[in-house]
Design a protein around this nucleic acid. Structure first.
Length: 604
RNA sequence: GCCCUCGUAGUUCAAUGGAUAGAACAAGGCUCUUCUAAGGCCUUGAUGUAGGUUCGAUUCCUACCGAGGGCACCA
């Protein structure tokens, strides 16, 4: 695939740099941006401010004179005059794509692009199915670890959040040239497993009937999740039971108890199968599944080898005193006083395993922000032992899903499972389209695509660091600023294109009357060519919401255009171009939705 | 107590140190004899407080107030 490396943005930036060189002016960072309002041009630069900000503190007097309308250099000018001087120079080597350059406000230089540029950009989009790509991560192998649900525990909306974000980031960096490897890390050992098993041993009869084949996968998984919640409850309330569960925990690690092994193997298999169903619905295919039980020994070995050097004994446990290296960090336990590895140790083993399996340039881990500090400590320990690998670790933290009514807790039983949320969203769509002219199978598929999109959108629309207040009524929105709105715009464009095909009007860029020109039709052309810039920014920042905001903008522009234009019209010489524009919109929308992990149904 | 995040319309979110702080929801009005009205058009409304840096601060710094998370054997 070919990626254009000479974007309009780069061209203009080069032009500015050349011009300043000709004028023998030094400038700081030159920022070229899209003005919010089209009337201020298509690109805008603060070059004058950049020149000014480049002055050192010694130039204070010089600066003062400049702003007082005094002099810069020899004779001329205040800020505006300086800007005009630059524009004059810019005009000497004007790019053919630039219609005009103007000075506005307190010294902005605004670039207006030509009609040909916009029309050509539409043509370019039609010629490139992968329009929007960049080469930020070309030749880089990047592993992204996300979702991380734990066997024996429910898949809740927090996992849904991690999955939506991780999948979108995976796709964005893939679209930016990376070889992306998707990984899932699952806690198949540890106290939570023992809690579930304790409860299942206690409810012997229920457990054996659950293990018989009469229940559905979902029912079995929810029985196991329920057992965990109950086990967790008694663990905290009863000292004696706590000890019993701790005993079971050890046996899970060393696999010394036949009965426990039997329930363990069954429970792990069932919950993993149930998770797999959810991944399928969400559109994720993992390349690797890492399990704590497998990486724990690796981590334990590392810690034991470095005992006395990096790690130290304290109160029978093995700890890492991170505050010795960074006052903002704190001590964490790596091996418990019972001799069992903690999350921190497992993480060391996991990281080692990842780099053994693949020669990675970057290892990205997506988790909720509650794990931010643990990760910093783990990374610090790794920095001491293996700085090269540590430097390739990137931890992306997202906010928490919170209930409007308070904290979510498995104990209180107010955990919302991912599955119930998905099916609820889908049911609502199904109800909405029940009278439409679709087959039952189509209805099922559409409601699934749209329901998942509503959920993913509500997660991805904001920057990933913030918490999301989950409101049962509002989280699944189908109107306005929503996933379904984007899908609807796409389906609408698609429907126009199908009709055009039926009427035999093809996308085109030529008019019969050679004298007339094709004119850009509105804001859409002025937005569509910006898509690659938006993708690049999202990739650089690991922030999908820039794409979300952009897609809302183009959807709105298209819907407005659609509202006051007849696109298909045999008597209109512009009709082929209007169809071309519609096609370009639909292609950008489809690529954009893909990057969010959202399907683009042709009809809805 | 210490360490991270974060405080923007009534609500949920935007805004790479720059132009008149954008949307959506909610409220009201208009709009399908044109291709999907899950749409379009119009009207109202916001930067927690106090300082500082800067020509310019929602953005950077300090303090305070408020929310969330973390701070040794859970993940």
């Amino acid at each position: 695939m070919e990626i254009k490396d000479n974007s309009m943005k780069e061209k203009i930036e080069n032009l500015i740099r050349e011009t300043l060189k000709n004028l023998k002016v030094e400038a700081g960072d030159i920022i070229l941006e899209h003005p919010e309002d089209f009337k201020n041009g298509d690109y805008s630069t603060n070059v004058v401010f950049a020149i000014v900000s480049n002055f050192t503190p010694i130039d204070v007097e010089k600066k003062k004179r400049l702003f007082d309308g005094g002099l810069v250099g020899e004779r001329s000018g205040n800020l505006k005059e300086l800007a005009e001087k630059i524009v004059k120079e810019l005009n000497k080597n004007l790019l053919e794509e630039i219609l005009k350059i103007e000075v506005a406000g307190a010294g902005f230089v605004n670039f207006y692009l030509t009609q040909e540029f916009f029309v050509n950009s539409v043509k370019e989009i039609l010629e490139n199915k992968n329009f929007g790509q960049n080469n930020l991560f070309v030749n880089k192998k990047i592993m992204v670890e996300y979702t991380q649900p734990n066997p024996f525990k429910p898949f809740h909306i927090g996992h849904l959040m991690s999955n939506a974000i991780g999948e979108s980031i995976s796709r964005i960096i893939e679209f930016s040239g990376a070889k992306t490897i998707r990984a899932n890390y699952q806690g198949d050992v540890g106290p939570h497993v023992a809690k579930a098993i304790y409860q299942m041993l206690k409810n012997k009869n229920d457990t054996s009937s659950a293990m018989s084949e009469n229940m559905s996968l979902t029912e079995k998984a929810s029985y196991i999740g329920q057992s965990y919640a109950e086990g967790n409850d008694v663990y905290e309330k009863d000292e004696k039971i706590k000890k019993e569960i701790d005993e079971i925990n050890k046996k899970v690690y060393d696999r010394s108890d036949k009965k426990i092994n039997e329930i363990y193997d069954w429970g792990k298999r069932i919950t993993l199968e149930a998770f797999e169903e959810i991944y399928k619905t969400l559109g994720t295919n993992f390349n690797y599944y890492f399990f704590e039980s497998l990486v724990a020994p690796t981590g334990q070995k590392i810690v034991e080898e470095k005992l006395g050097k990096v790690f130290e004994k304290s109160d029978k446990a093995i700890v890492f005193k991170a505050e010795k290296y960074d006052p903002k960090l704190h001590t964490r336990v790596f091996i418990t006083s019972q001799g069992l590895p903690t999350y921190e140790t497992k993480e060391l083993g996991l990281t080692k395993t990842k780099f053994e399996k693949e020669s990675l340039d970057m290892s990205v881990v997506v988790t909720a922000n509650e794990q931010e500090d643990y990760m910093k400590v783990v990374k610090k320990a790794l920095e001491i032992m293996n700085p090269e690998i540590a430097s390739k670790m990137k931890h992306i933290v997202h906010g928490m899903m919170r209930l409007a009514s308070g904290k979510m807790s498995s104990r209180k039983g107010n955990v919302i499972t991912g599955e119930s949320l998905i099916s609820e969203a889908c049911d609502e769509i199904l109800e909405k389209i029940k009278d439409r002219d679709f087959t039952e199978e189509e209805k099922r598929q559409i409601s699934k695509d749209v329901g998942v999109s509503a959920l993913k959108y509500s997660i991805l629309k904001q920057n990933i660091g913030g918490n999301i207040i989950y409101d049962f009524g509002k989280s699944i929105s189908f109107e306005g600023d929503s996933g379904p709105y984007l899908q609807y715009s796409y389906a609408r464009a698609n429907s126009v294109l199908e009709k055009a095909k039926a009427e035999n009007i093809l996308p085109g860029f030529l008019l019969d009357d050679k004298k007339s020109e094709i004119l850009p039709l509105g804001d859409i052309e002025k937005l569509l060519y910006r898509f690659p810039e938006v993708v690049l920014r999202s990739a650089e920042e690991f922030e999908p919401h820039h794409i979300v905001n952009y897609l809302i903008d183009i959807a709105r522009a298209f819907n407005t255009y659609y509202g006051n234009t007849k696109i298909i019209d045999k008597d209109d010489p512009m009709s082929p171009y209007k169809i071309a524009l519609t096609l370009a919109f639909s292609m950008v929308m489809k690529n954009g939705l893909y990057l969010l992990g959202i399907k683009a149904p042709g009809r809805m």
